[in-house]
């Protein structure tokens, strides 16, 4: 029996507005990761340093007034913008941030190019801008989980354990500073990964390119600094710039020479990286007539 005798039915139901067509792509990009145990484990790993912050919060709020613990507790660091900046940009957390950027980000566009589904998606009523927004937002959510979410949890613990919002009023910068850092720093990283991913057909090659650019950049800066002792060379180090950005956003003193912390230099770095990434994306996608 010919298969088409099952009958074709027309569809005359409603259709969602054109502007919302990116949502299924976004959802399909994000959900599979939460089903992977290794990824959830990575998320847990990233939160470990923040347990230190939670422990400090507990000790300060619950044992700060106890006579037997007062001496010990006063020697411990307080939970403030400085501590959050350290937690955001310590080597361990930055390494995990880069791992997530590679794991999620390398396949954003490259996988669709490899599977030849890019034309299938863009052959729907999805513009290039919507497509890139969906993909970028997916990576952005994960990077947010690794930066803003731990801060939020720490703040909730701080407020919850003290039972008052006084600390929050005093340290509101912890929240908006982290949000600003996430928007600029990891936000630029999202654009950068999108651009890299659009240039290859293999997520593996994209990952290798990211490692080469970022790790090599750090290594080259380290070598030149070791020889010249000129700290300005760290301008080209992504991890250093992320640290500087976090310190600026949170008003914390940086772990390196403050001369390198000029806001204009940090802004120039991220603006430059974002502009270069946007230029690559424009070049890759403007050939398609569906940029609008």
């Amino acid at each position: 029996m010919p298969v088409y005798e099952q009958g074709y039915e027309a569809y005359d139901g409603r259709r969602n507005p054109l502007g919302s067509r990116w949502k299924p792509l976004f959802r399909e990009e994000i959900l599979p990761y939460f089903k992977k145990r290794r990824f959830v484990f990575l998320l847990v790993l990233a939160l470990l340093p923040w347990l230190y912050g939670v422990a400090l919060t507990f000790l300060h709020t619950q044992l700060g007034d106890a006579d037997w613990a007062k001496d010990l507790v006063t020697k411990l660091p307080v939970v403030d913008e400085k501590l959050v900046a350290k937690l955001l940009t310590n080597g361990y957390d930055l390494f995990l941030l880069f791992i997530v950027a590679i794991w999620v980000g390398s396949g954003l566009v490259a996988r669709d190019r490899k599977d030849m589904t890019l034309d299938v998606f863009l052959g729907r009523a999805v513009t290039s801008v919507q497509y890139l927004w969906a993909k970028g937002a997916a990576l952005g959510v994960f990077l947010l989980l690794f930066s803003f979410l731990p801060t939020l949890i720490l703040v909730i613990f701080q407020v919850g354990l003290t039972g008052e919002a006084g600390w929050l009023a005093e340290h509101l910068r912890v929240l908006w500073g982290t949000l600003l850092y996430t928007a600029i720093g990891p936000g630029t990283l999202v654009l950068f990964m999108l651009a890299l991913s659009s240039m290859a057909r293999s997520p593996r090659v994209v990952g290798l390119a990211f490692i080469a650019l970022v790790f090599f950049g750090d290594m080259a800066c380290g070598v030149v600094y070791a020889i010249t002792k000129v700290s300005a060379v760290w301008f080209f180090s992504l991890s250093r710039e992320l640290t500087a950005l976090a310190c600026l956003c949170l008003g914390a003193p940086p772990p390196f020479a403050s001369a390198d912390l000029h806001p204009a230099l940090v802004a120039l770095f991220f603006a430059g990286l974002a502009a270069a990434s946007a230029a690559v994306l424009w070049a890759r996608f403007s050939r398609r007539g569906v940029l609008r």
């Binding site: 569809y11 259709r15 054109l18 067509r21 949502k23 034309d119």
Partner: peptide, 30 residues
Amino acid sequence: VGYVPEREGLRPGTSGVAWVALLGELSGLP
């Protein structure tokens, strides 16, 4: 317009119904 590409054009790791449903959503179907 509906499009059947020449090569591949399918996402590995997705079931047939999930793939077609995704394409439907991208074309505006709830």
